[in-house]
Amino acid sequence: MQLKVLLPSEIFFENDDVERIVAETREGSFGILPHRLDCVAALAPGILTYQETNRSPVYLAVDEGVLAKVGMKVLVSVRRAVRGTDLGQLHDAVKQQFLTLNDQERQVREALRKLESTFAGRLAEFSRER
Rank of each mutant, 00 (worst) to 15 (best):
30 F>H: 07
41 A>R: 07
17 D>K: 10
96 Q>F: 08
9 S>L: 10
25 T>G: 03
72 M>S: 15
32 I>H: 01
13 F>L: 09
84 G>C: 05
91 H>V: 07
63 D>M: 06
67 L>Q: 04
52 E>A: 10
7 L>T: 05
46 G>L: 00
102 N>E: 15
59 Y>V: 04
128 R>E: 15
41 A>M: 04
26 R>F: 14
40 V>A: 13
48 L>E: 00
78 V>E: 03
120 A>G: 03
99 L>C: 08
88 G>Q: 13
101 L>V: 10
66 V>I: 15
52 E>Q: 11
37 L>K: 12
2 Q>Y: 15
123 L>M: 10
37 L>V: 12
117 S>Y: 12
4 K>C: 02
110 E>M: 03
117 S>W: 11
32 I>S: 02
19 E>C: 09
113 R>F: 14
93 A>K: 08
115 L>D: 12
85 T>M: 11
104 Q>W: 10
61 A>T: 02
104 Q>K: 15
23 A>Y: 10
107 Q>A: 14
68 A>V: 15
50 Y>S: 02
11 I>G: 04
76 V>Y: 00
124 A>D: 08
19 E>H: 14
88 G>K: 12
90 L>I: 03
84 G>Q: 07
98 F>L: 01
28 G>Y: 00
95 K>I: 09
67 L>Y: 06
84 G>A: 06
124 A>T: 07
109 R>P: 02
59 Y>P: 03
105 E>Y: 12
78 V>M: 02
19 E>G: 07
75 L>K: 12
41 A>C: 02
69 K>T: 01
71 G>A: 08
60 L>H: 06
103 D>A: 13
29 S>D: 11
124 A>F: 03
8 P>Q: 04
115 L>E: 14
25 T>Q: 04
57 P>F: 04
26 R>N: 12
127 S>P: 01
103 D>P: 07
42 A>W: 08
6 L>Q: 02
121 G>R: 15
43 L>Y: 02
28 G>K: 00
64 E>W: 09
50 Y>L: 09
25 T>P: 04
92 D>A: 13
104 Q>D: 12
74 V>F: 01
18 V>P: 05
84 G>H: 05
123 L>P: 01
110 E>C: 02
77 S>T: 13
82 V>S: 07
8 P>Y: 05
65 G>I: 01
97 Q>S: 06
31 G>Q: 13
18 V>H: 05
104 Q>M: 13
99 L>N: 11
122 R>Q: 14
41 A>F: 05
92 D>H: 10
38 D>W: 02
30 F>M: 07
31 G>F: 09
57 P>T: 06
40 V>P: 05
41 A>G: 00
38 D>N: 11
35 H>N: 13
18 V>W: 03
53 T>C: 08
26 R>A: 14
95 K>Y: 07
128 R>S: 11
85 T>P: 05
113 R>L: 13
121 G>C: 10
61 A>S: 08
65 G>N: 04
94 V>R: 07
